[in-house]
Amino acid sequence: MSDELSRLIQRVGLGDRPAFRELYRLTSAKLFGVCLRVLREKSEAEDALQEVYVKIWHNAGRFAVTGQSPVSWLAAVARNHAIDRIRARRPQAVDIGLVPEIADAAPDPEQASVAAGERQRIENCLGKLKADRAEAVRGAYLEGYSYQELAERYSMPINTVRTWLRRSLLQLRECLQA
């Protein structure tokens, strides 16, 4: 799956439209899930997903230099765009308590097996953090929480949250690079 995605992204980088269509077929549900999770609004997530695939088409030629796995690269394109949108749209935090929860589903088996090793690594390292700090990192990644939203969520001054999240990131780095 991963090799196939790499090949498809490289072909998209060469302007191969059928490859683009196939890449979309294989990855759009996952990336729509990512956009929906951060943006929490269907119509906005749909607009975002369009932009994401326009970016994928234009930036696919640069995929190889990132040294990333295709799944990571695609997830980063989608997340970065969704975060850009939500920060531009919502400089003020929404009331996190009112945000509807979107249920998690188990990842599909193929993806699970590809990602299992990597996932274990980040999960192991998150597991070494204090529970609330690991939860903050996950919340920021999955829900797109800003420092301001994390501060409201944990009832802490924003600078305090930033200090402890940065400390968590340093610990993570040490663990990930060990």
């Binding site: 549900a29 980063a76 699970a112 996950r138 990930l176």
Partner: peptide, 18 residues
């Protein structure tokens, strides 16, 4: 960092777009 964090996205359910 994107590469290291991306496995967290495994927790996100795929949703078919229109």
């Amino acid at each position: 960092w994107e590469e290291q964090m991306a496995p967290m996205a495994a927790a996100i359910a795929p949703v078919e777009p229109p």
